[in-house]
Nucleic acid binder design. Structure first.
Lengths: 401, 401
DNA sequence: ATTAAATTCTTGACGACATTAATTAGTTGA
DNA sequence: TCAACTAATTAATGTCGTCAAGAATTTAAT
């Protein structure tokens, strides 16, 4: 929820929000189609859309771009005006900030990163506690730098989205608990509104990514949908019944600590057989080093060698893929999503993983749960920040919820 | 969704439905409270409630029963009139039918079971295919028998809920696939409307149980909530964002086939390390027989002997409890429910299981996910049929969705 | 060409429903 | 007995969506 009131929004009620959301997520749509999709009369759509057009958020597509011909008056579909407003998205990681500016369609139009000041080389243990004030200042500086890239940004950016690892309370804009940052109960959104003047929305990083996917990615039009990220940690998020599943106590999607039935090392959470202990980037490199005996093997070296045929390393990747596939099956069996996106930094090596992921998934998915669309793809760094921006876009439409 | 239109409902719109639902689930509530909870003005509640009162569904509580005193006019809370309408709930198992009549508050007022005609002794393999026509006839007979128990039933019962194991499409009233019954694409609700004259709603059995819990049990007032049932199979269902999570392909809550990280026997689904292969009633008795060497040991004997101190059997129960606890932790970590109910036929022996369930749950639940209310309790047989009736009650309020 | 049919979109009258403000109702405490 | 307080109701008002009619703009048939 935005931390302050919004005076000049043309989105006055739930109907306007629904119409705007549909145009935003489904692309250019005719009024008749909008009416059908929203369960409204075409007249209502016409009336609801006018203020949105007047405010510059929507436009009618030029007649040239109209849809397939047929009998009858041709439709003049409504589309968003992407450059009407810009959004800033910031992702806070353990050691740096990633920032983007996106347009209304969540297209990245500028990007930057910055180290967090006063932060040492990252250790594996939960990060050295960073002072919220320092981080706020660093974010404010990054925001300024981003907005200075184009006069339009400064003028037409009003909202900021922030994604953090850990438990973020979107409604209050508070970081409830982030072991990674060493924070507890930090009212980050309020601090950032103060510092930047932008209406700020805070969200957990994986959930923010899921929002981006729900509105601007693979989740479009799906009744339900799940996202799994693989990297330093393994996380997941679900969208169903029209919204993100948030977890009553701030925890949800903790697939990293699902006990997968393969013998493996103990997880840092203390429990046994956790997926994260088998398939995180850390687990992968540890196992790769052990298997090859090369103490200082890096991920990219391991990928390289596996690609050029190193059987030992191929097997390591295969095992990781298997664990990931089983994790995905757990999600599919429990949740039954229409689509399932797997994404991760590790997955730029997904040529090495995909086969074993799909194999293990197919073996463990129960019945038609396995029919869900399984999308495997890499996760560029900026994508996290784009997720944050997507949350900011969403906050424009749904101030509450 | 009901299979036919409903003429005489006083529940005309979403507001009336919301008010009615709140009174139904929260018990007697004053109009002011209803207004606050629904985000309406008190005036709107007054107006919306009147037709519901006139139709005999709601009443004002007698002044005697009013709430805590204080300054100001005392509230006259609204309450449901339980005997206004009766609902029939039928659960179809492999070998018999369980039927109940409940009132509007989902209180069981009559119960019966019946063997399914033409069905042999149950085998472990998916049941011998039963002819839908036979089952329909048997259900119709059971419904008649139930309704004949009291003249009011016959007169004031209009809706039937049916719960089946397997994939049920509530919207179309079709059994999409039930390996247990050996059915595929059977339009059961339509057949039953024909045979009984009652508006019929079909739902998966575990999901029906979750609905009962959501509206009339532990799920009341919870933002999200999960149910796990342990018995012949192990199932689960979730409620979040205001509704049941249904699974895009009819599958969800299949926790039985989650690979739990304990070495164990292969599951009938073909995958390895499934929870169901470790913790179902079948798995329990198999393991108990193996451990004791008593070939024809029954569940009740095993319970008996464990209770009187048989260490071998206690350990068997402990292992089962551990597996269940891990399964619960998976649900809690992924889903983050506010409350988590574990129920099952097996659990009338829950004195033998509870400790190990809670222990394993606490060990594997991640962070504050473990804070969710964990309710462990037995599952009386009629409860399944009551779930079906609860679905029928729900269908009165929410014809769609 | 002209006309008919099809389809999208718009307009204004109307109706459903929720809000606001004022009023009535019923209780406690001074 | 009156003031204060809270609950509920009423009537005027307003918002918002539907309905019915028609305008706009195309293809297809005559």
């Amino acid at each position: 929820m935005p931390r302050s009131q919004d005076p000049g929004t043309p989105i006055t009620g739930p109907t306007a929000a629904a119409i705007f959301t549909m145009v935003l997520t489904l692309g250019p749509v005719s009024r008749v189609d909008l009416a059908r999709l929203a369960g409204l009369s075409p007249a209502a759509v016409t009336k609801t859309a006018r203020p949105l057009i007047d405010a510059g958020y929507l436009k009618e597509l030029a007649p040239v771009e109209r849809t397939a011909p047929g009998a009858g008056r041709p439709a003049s579909p409504l589309a968003i005006v992407p450059e009407r407003e810009y959004f800033v998205g910031i992702k806070i990681t353990g050691d740096d900030l990633i920032g983007v500016v996106t347009d209304l369609g969540a297209r990245v139009v500028a990007a930057r990163h910055h180290p967090v000041p006063g932060f040492d080389v990252r250790t594996d243990a939960p990060g050295a506690p960073m002072e919220p004030a320092d981080v706020v200042a660093a974010i404010a500086a990054l925001v300024t730098e981003l907005l200075d890239q184009h006069p339009d940004f400064r003028q037409r950016a009003r909202r900021l989205g922030v994604a953090i690892p850990g438990d973020a309370d979107r409604d209050t804009g508070t970081v409830r608990y982030s072991p990674f940052l060493g924070w507890r109960d930090v009212p980050l959104a309020a601090l950032l509104e103060e510092a930047t003047g932008l209406t700020t929305t805070l969200e957990n990083d994986v959930k923010a990514l899921a929002v981006a996917e729900q509105w601007f990615g693979e989740g479009i039009g799906a009744s339900s949908f799940a996202l799994v990220t693989v990297g330093t940690g393994i996380g997941s998020a679900f969208v169903a019944n029209g919204g993100l599943i948030s977890g009553a106590f701030g925890v949800s999607g903790e697939i990293g600590h699902v006990p997968i039935g393969i013998e493996g090392p103990q997880c840092h959470c203390g429990a046994m057989g956790c997926l994260e202990a088998l398939a995180s980037t850390q687990a992968l490199i540890t196992e790769a080093r052990r298997a090859t005996g090369v103490e200082d093997l890096t991920i990219s070296q391991a990928v390289e060698r596996a690609r050029s045929g190193d059987q030992v390393l191929r097997k390591v990747f295969g095992t990781v893929g298997q664990a990931i596939g089983l994790g995905l099956a757990v999600v599919a069996n429990l949740f039954g999503p229409e689509r399932l996106v797997v994404s991760g930094e590790g997955l730029d090596a997904y040529d090495l993983l995909e086969e074993s992921i799909r194999e293990a998934f197919a073996a463990q998915a129960y019945g038609s749960a396995g029919r869900c669309g399984l999308i495997i793809r890499p996760l560029p760094f900026e994508e996290w920040a784009r997720g944050a921006a997507a949350v900011a876009v969403q906050s424009l439409v749904t101030p509450a919820g």
